[in-house]
Design a protein around this nucleic acid. Structure first.
Lengths: 335, 335
DNA sequence: TCCAATTGTGCAAACGATTGCATTTATTTA
DNA sequence: TAAATAAATGCAATCGTTTGCACAATTGGA
């Protein structure tokens, strides 16, 4: 800008105003300055701009905290956030917490220092203190939670409709003739785990089935599924269907059940939750509840940007629920 | 800082020096200032710091451009970059190009404006002009390519050992008794495609087998694999093994071959390339070349940070090759 | 012809840090 | 005791922008 000012014999202030299309600069000057700037491909220094505006405006950087990166659901969410943010002129600072509370705190500090305009976060599994989030709110940095929300904070959030997703899926299993449906869930300390369990319970109830506690287990990964499933299949009245909290677990069940010589889906039905890469790779392909991570990401970004730009009141906690969809494939019988 | 200075009755300059442990400030003052700062949890404004240092220092933000986010290999690489960057005090600005040249150019502009200290990038498929990269270099922003490198630019890069990876895998197929090995590759315009093809060709040659052009096809996704494989299996001398350029394609082959009633691996062996989620989900599990995305990411970040910090000479193009590893599972016979 | 209104510019102070140089004060040396 | 040296601090410019206010030049009206 200094150079332009010197070359064109005007002041820096004039250049600044001309470049921002201020009406107080005469048309000829304005155009001359803009042309010169363009020809010498001048572009403003964002750092300086930000410094100048630090009181009023926020940056256009959105902080995103994910527990893991190599993970279908989180990738999808990140993808959704990226799309929405880019479309609306924001960019992303991404960090992974590795499911560690300490890392999470450090990341929050770092993002605060780096002046993000807001943060989209899914808590680490071992996070049980929330000062770092409160600090951010106190510093005026809006927060939006996804997937694993912070129960102690009345913050904005977007979650998937775990309850209805599970309810519908289990209902479908029942409608296709299954009567003894096992449930493999995540630890009940997680809100999503509880919601899915409730969906399972209520689906049974709605169809007049009674719940057998022996068929309900805490199990949310493949290794555990492969460990506990053989015993379950040895029960005198073995399950004729499994609902698993995620696709990975469902795949574990599938591999055991097939190995034991049962036909899927004729003798045993299996339903997962996620609809990630895995679902179309196994044989038969997996019936599963689609979690629409990308949509979750988009909604989260939409809320955050609303908060930043003032479309949404800053003190308001916007809560959105993304609908799931049952994707029927080969591991369940047809109606 | 102003507040601290006022409260302690010193100048802002003194505060600045005290906080940066300058020896020219008396111990008592220094400690008093540091204590006061800590107690009132002061932390420096990075924006201002950057503005001040804009000539000398660069920011600590690394720009990362990925073609897609929901993709095992790219996720792994991003994960590797994140780990290395975080460990060394940098953070990531992530953007996806969606395989679009225009988006790639926009992202480069945006990252330049946002003063990243360097960029790690895999080109979009349809990128054939390189001014945007040259601009960055001209602006002094170091560039490191991964996976899909820019052939026209002598830039730093880290790639996987496609040639040896394929060579070893195909050799293994031969050693386990396969003689008619089909090759499904990516378009030869991509360097990695060519390298893998060469590995295939040379493995055959080394073992005294002649190449049958009918067994070599351009096919790098599941849909195409499912379309062209049936015809290939109908050949009078059908292949007894397939090498696919990625796991996804291999899965497509597997599903067709199984459907046609062949036993895998006894009648037909299949080998993929990636070792992503899919490889352990299909039945039988996939033998595949492990691509070590996370390691690729780490090396890329290491190079970039070296370039930024001057450990590596700025004009030098560092080229690293990450070794692959053959992961033997159920889709190939044993030795 | 003079004053008011309008229009176009420039000055200079911010934004929050850093740093070369000058200045003050204390200490040592001759 | 005066001069030289060392130690601690402050002044002020700087990084690249923006913007309130003052000022000059032009125009219009009475």
């Amino acid at each position: 800008m200094k150079d332009i000012a010197r070359e064109l014999g005007v002041s820096v202030a004039t250049v600044s105003r001309a470049l921002s299309d201020s009406p107080s600069i005469s048309r000829e000057r304005r155009e001359a300055i803009q042309r010169y700037a363009r020809e010498h491909n001048y572009f403003p220094n964002v750092i300086a701009e930000q410094l100048r505006h630090s009181r009023r405006n926020s940056s256009r950087a959105i902080g995103v905290i994910v527990p893991e990166l190599v993970h279908y659901y989180f990738s999808s969410i990140l993808d959704g956030i990226e799309s929405e943010a880019t479309a609306r002129g924001y960019h992303l600072i991404v960090a992974k917490s590795n499911e560690s509370y300490e890392r999470e705190v450090k990341i929050c500090d770092s993002m605060l220092k780096n002046k993000v305009c807001g943060i989209i976060v899914s808590q680490a599994k071992d996070t049980e203190r929330y000062e770092h989030f409160l600090n951010l709110e106190a510093a005026g940095v809006p927060l939006v939670f996804y997937d694993r929300i912070c129960p102690a904070l009345n913050a904005s959030r977007v979650v998937v409709d775990d309850y209805m997703g599970t309810m519908n899926a289990v209902s479908y299993l029942i409608e296709t003739g299954c009567r003894r449906i096992a449930f493999y869930g995540a630890p009940m300390s997680m809100v999503i785990a509880k919601n899915r369990y409730n969906g399972y319970r209520d689906a049974l109830y709605k169809h007049g089935l009674t719940m057998d506690e022996r068929l309900v287990r805490i199990c949310d990964n493949r290794a555990d599924a492969e460990r506990i499933t053989p015993a379950m299949m040895r029960l005198e009245d073995r399950p004729d269907a499994f609902f698993a909290v995620n696709d990975e677990t469902a795949i574990g069940i599938l591999s055991v059940v097939k190995r034991l010589g049962y036909n899927v889906p004729d003798e045993v039905s299996i339903c997962g939750f996620t609809n990630g890469f895995r679902a179309t790779v196994c044989d038969p392909m997996l019936t599963t509840v689609e979690q629409r991570g990308s949509q979750v990401g988009k909604e989260a970004a939409d809320i955050l940007i609303g908060l930043v730009e003032g479309t949404l009141p800053a003190d308001h906690a916007e809560k959105r629920i993304v609908k799931t969809r049952l994707v029927i494939r080969g591991t369940t019988r047809s109606l």
